[in-house]
Amino acid sequence: MGFKLLSKLLVYLTASIMAIASPLAFSVDSSGEYPTVSEIPVGEVRLYQIADGVWSHIATQSFDGAVYPSNGLIVRDGDELLLIDTAWGAKNTAALLAEIEKQIGLPVTRAVSTHFHDDRVGGVDVLRAAGVATYASPSTRRLAEVEGNEIPTHSLEGLSSSGDAVRFGPVELFYPGAAHSTDNLIVYVPSASVLYGGCAIYELSRTSAGNVADADLAEWPTSIERIQQHYPEAQFVIPGHGLPGGLDLLKHTTNVVKAHTNRSVVE
């Protein structure tokens, strides 16, 4: 069995187990497998329904001669939608809004960016022009300005110390501490036991640490421990890039980060 097929099978099995364990909360999309990078042309966006009122959005972007996937989250909030992270750029984010209108038909009224990198804030200006209120932590807003990236308009308070959590509509926002970046936030959907790890969490097929220019490698494993301790009931975990899975993604990420750190020390 090929690795790609095995990865998709694991996603399907995880979703099936969740649907059985929580039949009222989960209505997993039966329309197909989780979209992969090879299936999404740059400039297009796919939506994948995880649970009743919960979707991931998947886009792709060219970077350094390669094409990478990027995940975000959409959560229903009454007759409105909360968006977590842009679709990595203005063109993708405009396509995301169009796809949401086509498939869901509810307005996106608020959006949260989970850290300051372009795959999370690139497209904020498109959201703002569409009347979406954009939010991020003060740290993310400051770092985005320093980096020359787009800056969300509103500040999220109460997320300055490791372990801080605040309720934001249908989700809980959690600051686990520094990891992929010093400002990275985690998003949890309690009604569906869905954990969105953003770039602080890796997919299972990833074996290298990737972009760690703004990471705190020493603190990252401790931050992941905080996530595990705060959300032990999480059933569906979405990484910032690639295929979702279960809580095993947290341990896998820790292993990859520690291996990278150990290699760096040896070198």
Rank of each mutant, 00 (worst) to 15 (best):
residue 118 D to A: 08
residue 143 L to G: 03
residue 232 P to M: 08
residue 146 V to R: 14
residue 211 N to E: 13
residue 219 E to F: 06
residue 2 G to I: 07
residue 126 V to P: 02
residue 191 S to K: 12
residue 183 D to C: 00
residue 29 D to E: 11
residue 64 D to M: 09
residue 78 G to F: 08
residue 168 F to G: 01
residue 256 V to I: 12
residue 69 P to A: 15
residue 247 L to P: 14
residue 253 T to L: 00
residue 210 G to L: 06
residue 60 T to C: 06
residue 191 S to F: 12
residue 223 S to R: 01
residue 181 S to R: 02
residue 231 Y to A: 00
residue 245 G to L: 02
residue 75 V to L: 06
residue 94 A to L: 15
residue 98 A to D: 11
residue 202 Y to C: 06
residue 191 S to P: 07
residue 186 I to Y: 01
residue 224 I to T: 05
residue 243 L to P: 10
residue 9 L to E: 15
residue 220 W to F: 05
residue 158 G to R: 07
residue 74 I to N: 05
residue 127 L to W: 00
residue 145 E to G: 13
residue 204 L to R: 13
residue 106 L to D: 08
residue 33 E to D: 10
residue 134 T to F: 01
residue 100 I to P: 01
residue 11 V to N: 11
residue 227 I to S: 04
residue 70 S to W: 00
residue 148 G to W: 04
residue 132 V to M: 05
residue 124 V to S: 08
residue 259 A to W: 09
residue 26 F to I: 13
residue 237 V to Q: 00
residue 125 D to W: 06
residue 44 E to M: 12
residue 83 L to M: 10
residue 122 G to F: 04
residue 119 D to C: 02
residue 14 T to V: 08
residue 70 S to Y: 04
residue 245 G to N: 03
residue 176 P to N: 01
residue 136 A to Y: 01
residue 152 P to Y: 00
residue 202 Y to D: 08
residue 224 I to P: 00
residue 21 A to M: 14
residue 38 S to K: 07
residue 21 A to Y: 14
residue 60 T to L: 14
residue 78 G to V: 09
residue 169 G to T: 04
residue 250 L to W: 01
residue 192 A to H: 09
residue 96 L to T: 00
residue 145 E to Q: 13
residue 13 L to M: 14
residue 47 L to K: 03
residue 243 L to F: 11
residue 37 V to P: 15
residue 110 R to W: 09
residue 82 L to E: 03
residue 237 V to D: 02
residue 258 K to M: 12
residue 145 E to K: 14
residue 262 N to Y: 11
residue 90 A to S: 11
residue 179 A to F: 05
residue 88 W to H: 00
residue 106 L to E: 05
residue 45 V to D: 05
residue 202 Y to M: 15
residue 181 S to A: 06
residue 74 I to Q: 01
residue 191 S to W: 14
residue 148 G to C: 04
residue 244 P to W: 06
residue 257 V to C: 04
residue 161 S to G: 13
residue 257 V to E: 03
residue 128 R to P: 05
residue 159 L to A: 01
residue 239 P to Y: 01
residue 35 P to R: 07
residue 144 A to W: 02
residue 159 L to V: 10
residue 55 W to A: 01
residue 152 P to A: 04
residue 195 L to W: 01
residue 95 A to F: 15
residue 90 A to R: 10
residue 94 A to D: 10
residue 145 E to D: 11
residue 227 I to L: 07
residue 244 P to A: 06
residue 77 D to I: 02
residue 103 Q to T: 14
residue 139 S to D: 13
residue 168 F to W: 09
residue 261 T to H: 15
residue 132 V to C: 02
residue 190 P to A: 09
residue 18 M to I: 15
residue 97 L to Q: 01
residue 102 K to E: 12
residue 222 T to Y: 13
residue 206 R to A: 15
residue 218 A to P: 09
residue 43 G to C: 04
residue 52 D to R: 10
residue 153 T to P: 06
residue 86 T to P: 02
residue 37 V to M: 15
residue 162 S to C: 07
residue 72 G to K: 03
residue 233 E to Y: 12
residue 182 T to Y: 13
residue 36 T to E: 15
residue 52 D to E: 13
residue 19 A to Y: 15
residue 177 G to W: 03
residue 50 I to T: 06
residue 193 S to F: 13
residue 220 W to I: 03
residue 161 S to C: 07
residue 35 P to H: 07
residue 90 A to E: 13
residue 20 I to N: 13
residue 221 P to F: 05
residue 131 G to I: 06
residue 96 L to N: 01
residue 23 P to D: 11
residue 263 R to E: 15
residue 167 R to M: 12
residue 1 M to C: 01
residue 12 Y to G: 10
residue 236 F to C: 09
residue 28 V to T: 12
residue 87 A to F: 01
residue 46 R to I: 12
residue 144 A to V: 07
residue 23 P to M: 11
residue 38 S to H: 13
residue 204 L to A: 13
residue 225 E to M: 11
residue 266 V to T: 14
residue 217 L to T: 09
residue 159 L to P: 07
residue 266 V to Y: 14
residue 88 W to R: 01
residue 54 V to C: 04
residue 45 V to W: 02
residue 2 G to F: 15
